[in-house]
Design a binder for these strands. Sequence first.
RNA 1: GUCCCUAUCGUCUAGCCCGGCCUAGGACAUCGCCCUUUCAAGGCGGUAACGCGGGUUCGAAUCCCGCUGGGGACGCCA
Length: 468
Amino acid sequence: MDKEVRVRFAPSPTGHLHIGGARTALFNLLFARHNNGKFILRIEDTDTTRSTDEYIEAIIQGMKWLKLDWDEGPFRQTARFDIYKSYAEKLLGEGKAYRCYCSQEELEQRRQEAAAQGRPPKYDGRCRNSEHQPDKPFTVRFKTPQEGQTIVNDLIKGVVEFENNQLDDMIIVRSDGTPTYNFVVVVDDIDMKITHIIRGDDHLNNTPKQILIYKAFDWDPPAFGHLPMILGADKARLSKRHGATSVMAYEEMGYLPDALVNYLVRLGWAYGDQEVFSRDELIKFFDLENIGKSAAVFNPEKLLWLNGQYIINSTAAEIADAVLPFLVKAGIVRNDEHIDKEWLSKAVKTLQERSKTLIELATSLKYYINEHVEIDQKAKEKFLKPDSIKVLAELKAELENMSDFSAVELEKVFVSLAEKLSIKLGSIAQPVRVAITGSTASPGIFEVIEIVGKDKTLKRLSKVIEGG
RNA sequence: GUCCCUAUCGUCUAGCCCGGCCUAGGACAUCGCCCUUUCAAGGCGGUAACGCGGGUUCGAAUCCCGCUGGGGACGCCA
């Protein structure tokens, strides 16, 4: 029997959970669930000058919103410094690492000189044989073999070969005693029994360095799978200038977490021609084999379409719950105001197929909830001319006598009035729509009126008829 | 500069591993038509791609080489 699959998502808390990170986390989760394995969250906060607790919280919040549930963690590397220290000492003791006394300024200067002369900006290994100088600050460098090749057998990219002499002696412990990424990632992945490392392909170049560390400890490296990057519309690496990149910004813009997940999974992964997947389907179908090798451009329009699909395919009650915070935020309902869920669901139902985001939906909901509506000037000019007003007056008289204010009954009244006046139904419906909703576009006018109710409907008609 | 990855419609992709079924399929966007009380949703249809050059082969989007384009890495960041 194979050993249990264990994967991890290892963000560094130097920013919010962004689109790229979320997709990496998602692929890890899906891989774990598909293989009945475990998904571990590990916070890579060894850079204590840039990591913050706020960002840890933000990342966790983003993962929870997307329902990327992890099984173990979050583990913080800053809580594990003793472990790394003992391993670094082991390497030092075995002569596989050495103390380097070069200062940051010296190193920077040498890099610049190298760049100016067109040489590779590689550390020259000059401290490899230095005497121990107890009174001087030092970093610990890994003694990278300078001959031979290191092969990465990547699950996604295939076999990738690196010349060891391209790699330099990387720093594994900073002069302040804290360990660095390429070192701790190896120690942790072994310690946490990670079987598959699935991460962005910006890490592919780090992989041979890490494999060399595994070898130095005589450990078997896990399997690697490097995911292609996500780019912006200009094919440059996705960043703030391409618009919203933080996952939580999408929540604020009225996106559903399942829609974002569905969009993200299709960036680099495909299952035939299928576009919309349930979570269960994703777990069932997900496979590293179906992941593409080339970078993908983030396309907000398709995400918007998918969000619309998810809104349509959810139940009205689900969407009503989801839209409520947006109604409060937009000031359409007060925080403490009671709003009838069943009624709200009815209203939501008429708007589902016309809303691509919850923000849009909440905005449209205004004319159901508010007492009065603001009428669009252009709509008014076009549909609330004297002739139409006269029709509205006749309609109002008819409506006042109705007891069953249902869409079915309303339609009958509208139709017979149209016949009586020998005009098209649209000649009544459109002015009414403007009077009731304030605009020329809305769900079917009969259902709108039913939901708005007799009281508000008559008030709004009166206001228009009286020229208010 | 060096190293690494990559290359099918504007975008996401199927097909490529196991050459012929590809006159290259689907989706978003876009355009047109239908439905219709408006707007949507939905249905139908259109425009639109194998980066270039060499091979191999009876035959290449599919295999090989080169070029070009794009991305990434080269940090006491991760």
